[in-house]
């Protein structure tokens, strides 16, 4: 049985880590941008951001004043049992979110959409969002928090099979150019693309592709993996860098996730995880121990399965 106190204290630690520490994979990707950026203004911006990450870590203060809208991704190993059950876990995550808002501190960003009511703790109706996944083996729970900014850089479009790859390319460019000007998307970004699924699933897949995969990871379908690299290069050839200044630093990496969709359609979503790509993950075991990491390991062979049954593949391979 995983103790609730461990879940809550780990969740609070994750909230602070996400807000303060830029993940290593994004940092390495941004340094590669810095090495190749020729635009003087764009290069200055990236250099300032690199210094900013150091200041955040040294001072233990949030790297960005807009600390985004904190949310949670929870993955249960199939044998995991949590003290207080799923309701207990949700209570622990809401408490951790509220406590970290004053503890770090974070900006109390969450308000009612109409009445603008602010509880000053980032908790409210349907907030923080909590999404779930399951894994075929394991007695642990993985907690991931993502603090993504909320206003610019995402879009959805219903394309059709006849629009083809060129239609995908065009909508990708539209989104990057539209939100890249003036740096509204806070690029260079991890661009996530959702292809297929129902409309809502399409948005969810694209968002998870940007926020829950590490820079350098590739989709297991080799043709999709090639698209990811092609689109990264395409984005970096627009001529636009950080803050929309002339340059080549738009896309730190591009990730594509797919879901089976209606036979008549090809829905697509684009999401941009920004210069403060805030995510942190921990695995919590029944003895209360927590192992922290920056790779959410959200997408697996199990989560991407396309068969009715699971089990033809050995379970260990699925865990990879």
């Amino acid at each position: 049985m995983i103790p609730l106190a461990s879940l809550q204290s780990t969740a609070e630690a994750l909230m602070a880590k996400a807000a303060i520490e830029i993940p290593d994979d994004y940092l390495a990707g941004l340094r590669r941008c810095a090495d190749t950026e020729k635009g003087d203004l764009s290069a200055f911006v990236i250099q300032a951001m690199l210094e900013n990450y150091e200041a955040a870590k040294e001072d233990r203060r949030a790297m960005c004043g807009d600390t985004g809208v904190p949310r949670w991704y929870v993955k249960y190993g199939n044998e995991a049992r949590v003290e207080g059950g799923p309701v207990g876990l949700e209570a622990a995550l809401r408490r951790a979110t509220a406590r970290a808002t004053t503890g770090v501190p974070l900006r109390p960003n969450r308000v009612h959409p109409l009445w603008r009511t602010d509880h000053n703790n980032n908790v409210g109706i349907n907030a923080p969002e909590i999404e779930y996944a399951f894994h075929p083996e394991g007695d642990w729970v993985d907690l991931t928090t993502v603090h993504k900014g909320g206003l610019f850089g995402s879009d959805y479009r219903m394309l059709f099979p006849g629009d083809g790859l060129e239609g995908i390319r065009r909508f990708f460019l539209d989104t990057l150019i539209g939100f890249g000007k003036r740096g509204l998307a806070c690029q260079p970004a991890i661009v996530g693309i959702g292809l297929g699924g129902s409309k809502d699933a399409c948005m969810v897949l694209g968002k998870q592709a940007s926020c829950l995969r590490t820079v350098g990871s590739r989709n297991p379908d080799p043709k999709i993996a090639a698209m990811e690299e092609e689109f990264r290069e395409l984005g970096n050839s627009i001529g636009m860098g950080a803050m929309g200044f002339m340059g080549s630093s738009m896309v730190v990496d591009c990730h594509i996730e797919v879901g089976y969709c209606h036979t008549g359609g090809m829905p697509m979503s684009v999401h941009m995880f920004c210069l403060s790509s805030r995510r942190a993950t921990a695995r919590i075991f029944p003895d209360g121990r927590a192992e922290f990491r920056t790779d959410p390991d959200w997408f697996t062979a199990y989560s991407r399965r396309d068969t009715v049954e699971w089990g033809e593949t050995p379970l260990l391979a699925a865990a990879q």
């Binding site: 300032a48 900013n52 203060r61 004043g65 000053n120 740096g183």
Partner: peptide
């Protein structure tokens, strides 16, 4: 710049001499 250099800007703040309208408008 960035956006944004939140931690660098936070370092530059030496004092907060006042906060107005926090009850009327909320902290943010």
């Amino acid at each position: 710049v960035g956006y944004g250099t939140g931690a660098l800007l936070g370092r530059g703040i030496k004092d907060v001499p006042g906060v107005y309208w926090k009850d009327e408008l909320g902290l943010a």
